[in-house]
Design a binder for these strands. Structure first.
Lengths: 338, 338
DNA sequence: CTGAAAGCGCTTACAG
DNA sequence: CTGAAAGCGCTTACAG
């Protein structure tokens, strides 16, 4: 018995030829209709889309990519567990769409190194790659030799890739000046170690403290809630207790706030806390965190546009964009009671 | 002047032919080496990989997919902003890899509906789709007609798709029994509305309360921190104040804990709180949430294996897996003081 | 191992 | 609008 070809499996996708046959036109015409090119009457377009819908036809992305030799995909390398990255990719999607690009996500997870995620993206021949988060100059340079690259976050310079970063130093100064203006003199910084922007935030903190003749105290931290909770324990060992803390980022700040409250202290009554990022978590009503907001949609916009300029406008010189930061005063800062 | 073909752009990817030419072998042999098939000596393999590395060659996924007519990609539809989904995808990656599959992420965001993400995944011709989170029976059934489908989370039944869900009802009973055993009599449930598992968790709560002759009180909620914070305000209006709360999920529980502490109450001193999910957030030291853990890695494993069975073993009957839940007693529950 | 060949599902000119 | 044709970068037999 000959095989009928019907395996009963739902994954035999219809092709352009099926649609063409059903409508009674050429495959080329179907292609034209689906790409929205001129050369087909409105009536034909309607019939083609109608037939496609009935058949459940959708173009094969792999075939389109292969033949057109022109990817309309932006690869985005990100860490799913990083809330700030999630905020960024949610902003990247509409920006990419505006320019006619799709987004392909490359996830970096505990079991999946950056290199693995990169190879996957390059395997899909994405037109460009947006790299969120930390990366060394060597990594970025190597990647940029293979694909147009925009690094989002790290303060790196190079003429083979673009970057979009925030004015972390200025943001830190805004945060600390705010605390000083409220009357705080004993302000501690829980830093972000070697993570993106951490050095500049430290610098900004130190500069303001020096300017006001105040002693700088830095507790080593990281950009996580755990590190904030840990730092809070350190804080409690200080005598006298600092009246304010400038955290390396929002996640760290949230950890600090919760740990302090758990230990029976009030925020901002006993201790004021400022974060950094302006993440969604900071906005939650039970957190209501005073923070330095990075311009997330502006960053997403600049990153996508940098990629588009290289892709569609032929720009080849590097471009390094720095987005402004903004102090958002909310409920975790107040004048010191002591 | 003829165009040399060198545009100065870094995105002219080398092909298999380039590698073959460099090594001095046929393209077919390079293909064999890259797919790890037999038919090439160890020495040839080394030379091929060496040349590929020097050229920066990586196979074109689109071309492989197109020609082999056999996708080794699992599409995963998820919501980046949902921490529980992030925990799941991090577990899905290694499981998929174990079976020789790659993962393609389809993101559902505020600006990007599920249908859009689905079309993208189908455009890539992923071999199967794992659907995380909420979906209606109609949606799931329609999708399952086009691609082998595993729905993770929703308590749906159908013979066109597989599901993996948790024993939410039993989990809820474990949580509430725990509170009753501690001596609580006034236990409120902040529910998850129409979200996945919410109905079963409500049922479990009601069953235990009824069994012990206790009055059931349900505050309408959602699976978010905001809803928890909101519910905490409701709670404070209760007279007398309930001594324990069973939250619809961990995010909601975290919102409740924080809001209560912010209002000056202690957890578990004044109020005990139990969550649901066993998410990473619940484990954080400053939260230390008592919760009902869903078997995340077991769920990921079952979901991937269900897909693999349809793909590689030809299974066509539906399979509905229910994973056990487990009570994890941590620091947010204690005997009532009142 | 080689080498020629076919073909996956498309896009892209091109003559009619 | 059609129709035949070439080709994207691969995989997959197949004869040698």
């Amino acid at each position: 018995m000959p095989n009928t070809g019907d395996t009963g499996r739902p994954n035999r996708h219809p092709t352009m030829a099926d649609v063409a046959a059903k409508v009674g036109v050429s495959r080329a015409l179907v292609s034209i209709v689906f790409r929205g090119k001129e050369g087909a009457s409105q009536e034909t377009r309607d019939r083609v889309f109608q037939a496609a819908a009935e058949l459940g036809y959708h173009p094969d992305t792999a075939a389109q990519l292969l033949r057109s030799h022109r990817s309309r995909h932006l690869g985005v390398l990100y860490t799913p567990a990083e809330p700030f990255h999630v905020d960024l990719i949610e902003a990247i999607y509409p920006m990419a769409e505006k320019h006619g690009y799709d987004v392909v996500l490359g996830a970096q997870t505990p079991t999946r190194a950056m290199t693995k995620a990169v190879e996957e993206l390059l395997g899909f021949r994405t037109a460009a790659v947006l790299l969120l988060g930390d990366a060394t100059l060597a990594e970025v340079t190597r990647l940029a030799a293979r694909v147009p690259l925009v690094a989002v976050g790290p303060h790196l310079r190079g003429d083979a890739f673009d970057t979009v970063s925030s004015d972390d130093s200025r943001g830190a100064r805004l945060a600390v000046e705010h605390l000083v203006e409220l009357g705080h003199r004993h302000i501690v910084h829980v830093d972000g170690g070697v993570k993106a922007g951490a050095a500049d935030r430290r610098r900004g903190y130190r500069a303001v403290m020096r300017k006001h003749g105040l002693p700088a105290t830095i507790i080593p931290g990281a950009y996580t809630e755990e590190s904030g909770a840990l730092a809070a324990r350190e804080l409690l060992r200080c005598d006298p207790l600092p009246t304010a803390v400038f955290a390396g980022n929002d996640r760290c700040a949230v950890g600090i706030v919760h740990a302090l409250r758990r230990f029976g202290l009030t925020v901002p009554g006993d201790v004021s806390v400022v974060g950094f990022d302006g993440s969604r978590a900071a906005q939650l009503p039970h957190i209501d965190l005073t923070t330095v907001r990075q311009d997330i949609s502006g960053t997403a916009e600049a990153a996508v546009e940098s990629a588009i300029e290289r892709l569609d406008d032929g720009r080849t010189e590097a471009k390094h964009v720095i987005r402004k930061t903004q102090l958002i005063v909310r409920g975790t800062t107040a004048p010191p009671k002591r």
